[in-house]
Design a protein around this nucleic acid. Structure first.
Lengths: 357, 357
DNA sequence: TTGAAAGCGCTAACAG
DNA sequence: CTGTTAGCGCTTTCAA
């Protein structure tokens, strides 16, 4: 059954011109499909004369390879899957940008999936990626994830896997994380050096590595410098703006505010900004703060928020390198963990106070 | 060649347990692969008793369907491709969130690609999506794109296609756009109503529909209310922060500043904020502005930026609906365009001035 | 340097 | 209700 050609149809019209296949080209050239396949892939078997004519004909016929067929037959997809918890978030959109760039340089496709912080979605995404036979997976856990079985399946299937930033508590896996504890320590250490003693931590879930480690860094600094802890200022509630806002409001209503807060993420700090503004207080004079992680908009906040830097490019590159190594040497690869160092970037918060007490 | 089982390997270890296929299950159950295939897809042909046992066995054997094979055979992927120019941008990350949600409700996978505002990348992405045999494509053009031939190919192939927000100037295509002209008009109209006369427009490339339409809305309002135009305040330079910053700085150095600016996008407005702050002026007293489009962080800017709203959920939903309709009724579908209405959201800019001149 | 044969894992169409 | 046959479009032997 032949479909009509599109000769007289307007460009946007649906016309179902059936795409040419290797066989079509082969027939036209009186060669075999195998030869066409090889020529198109620049296989050394084929003479350059043949290659030239094949390439040209393919172009003329508007040939598009069928990736499904190719992958099915080649048992290799040249595709990596990425599972991120969120995307409308500077850290992750920056990570994905870098992953895309690096992947394309290496001729890999990338399939991005977003769990929206839902463990269930995350699981489905991983299964889909497995079903798609991706060559490897880079994942950052949702904040809900407690059950790592899907990822164990990935390992059992021999599919290379690297965790980035939000990593599970599992043996023998490859991970790339920023030095959460060290960064947190530096941040809090600085606050203390500035003379703060009434310091709180709006922390993330300690079921996640980042929640745990950042809190550990906080405690380490408080301990080291013998700053007394106030339990009601040490919170655990997630990673988003809403939490930061509510937490601050709550303390405000109870008239039990710390004078300095170390926020577990940038969105949490944003929530604090919002709350502070709402109750008519000022940053950094009435309340000062610093957070872990950047945003695009630091420059436009008043005052600009100081933060522990998360070097997204280094992190992405490290993750891709671990993954590529794992893909290249499946059999002999031993899981590795990379810890990316970090520093604080001081902007308009976490600065010298006007009148130290 | 049999691979060793993973019984004694640690979870994260690469062990290459070969995934079960339909045939494996069939053999185990002494049924045919076809029966298994149907049972797994809940086909009415199969008795529920058989279905139960098949489902259970598949589960036990850790069966994962091979999507490549399935799609190749079914000639349907249940996947839509999305091409966006940027992702670290509130408008687009919000769009993609919605598309994901809607698609998953309808049991579609989505493959997201990002052109990074590069026409070349965009072209490659579209080709890849075609090669992946996606069931349809939603695209938003890069700011560089002038050549629409790839998209014509998509049409010729009979692959459903809907453009969103940044649309090409092509006949017979489906598009979803916000009412750029109307929104721009309302914004400028308001500025005029507030008494401004020295009004500029930091516009986008007029080669793009949004650049063109927003400028048209600006001119329409200026005309309607007979406000004199000053050519040196009517700029064309893109959509990003850097442009907004440079443009403002340039006018500042030439000592030829407008008192009000209508910025073509939110990032452009951000650039203006940065520049204004840097030269020690104040918003909205010294310079006032409004822009087209939102960001996550409006609340934290000082003052919060007023803007023409872009209703991302409505836009995403409309685009998905057009696409689904097109997929369902390939043969009879006629391209349609949807114009989504919009309004301005007034925050801390574009407000009554203290002392009208 | 080229090609014939075989098959990747699955599903659609038809029989039984 | 179940199974047989015949591909989907491509790549990988291996022989010519």
């Amino acid at each position: 059954m032949k479909k009509r050609r599109s000769s007289d149809s307007p460009p946007g019209m649906v016309v179902n011109e059936k795409p040419a296949t290797l066989d079509d080209i082969a027939r036209r050239l009186k060669l075999s499909a195998v030869t066409i396949s090889k020529a198109l892939r620049d296989h050394p078997d084929i003479s350059s004369a043949t290659k030239r004519i094949v390439l040209q004909t393919a172009e003329e016929m508007g040939y598009t390879p069928n990736i499904m067929a190719r992958n099915l037959s080649a048992r290799r997809t040249h595709t990596i899957g990425v599972v991120l918890p969120k995307i409308a978030h500077f850290f992750f959109s920056s990570i994905i940008d870098h992953i895309y760039n690096i992947a394309h340089d290496r001729k890999y496709e990338v399939i991005l999936t977003v769990s929206q912080e839902s463990a269930e979605r995350e699981k489905k995404h991983v299964q889909t990626l497995l079903a798609m036979k991706v060559d490897g997976i880079i994942a950052s856990l949702s904040q809900e994830t407690r059950d790592y079985r899907v990822f164990e399946t990935v390992g059992r299937r021999g599919v290379p896997l690297v965790f980035l930033d939000r990593v599970p508590d599992l043996p023998n896996i490859s991970t790339v994380v920023v030095d959460d504890r060290g960064g947190a320590f530096k941040a809090v250490e600085r606050a203390i050096a500035l003379g703060h003693r009434r310091i709180g931590h709006f922390g993330g879930f300690v079921s996640t590595n980042i929640g745990r480690e950042r809190k550990a860094g906080f405690l380490e600094a408080m301990n080291r410098y013998q700053v007394p802890l106030n339990e009601s200022w040490i919170l655990e509630g997630g990673f988003d703006e809403e939490y930061g806002y509510q937490a601050f409001m709550d303390l405000y209503r109870r008239k039990d505010l710390p004078e300095f807060v170390f926020a577990v993420t940038h969105p949490v700090a944003m929530g604090i900004y919002k709350a502070v503004k709402e109750v008519g207080m000022r940053i950094p004079d009435d309340v000062d703060l610093i957070c872990f992680g950047n945003a695009q908009v630091q420059d436009f906040l008043s005052p600009p928020l100081s933060a522990v830097d998360q070097p997204t490019e280094v992190m992405s590159r490290s993750a891709m390198e671990l993954l590529m190594e794992q893909i290249a040497r499946r059999e002999t690869y031993k899981p590795r963990s990379i810890l990316v160092g970090t520093d604080i970037i001081v902007r308009g918060t976490c600065v010298q106070r006007r009148q130290p007490e």
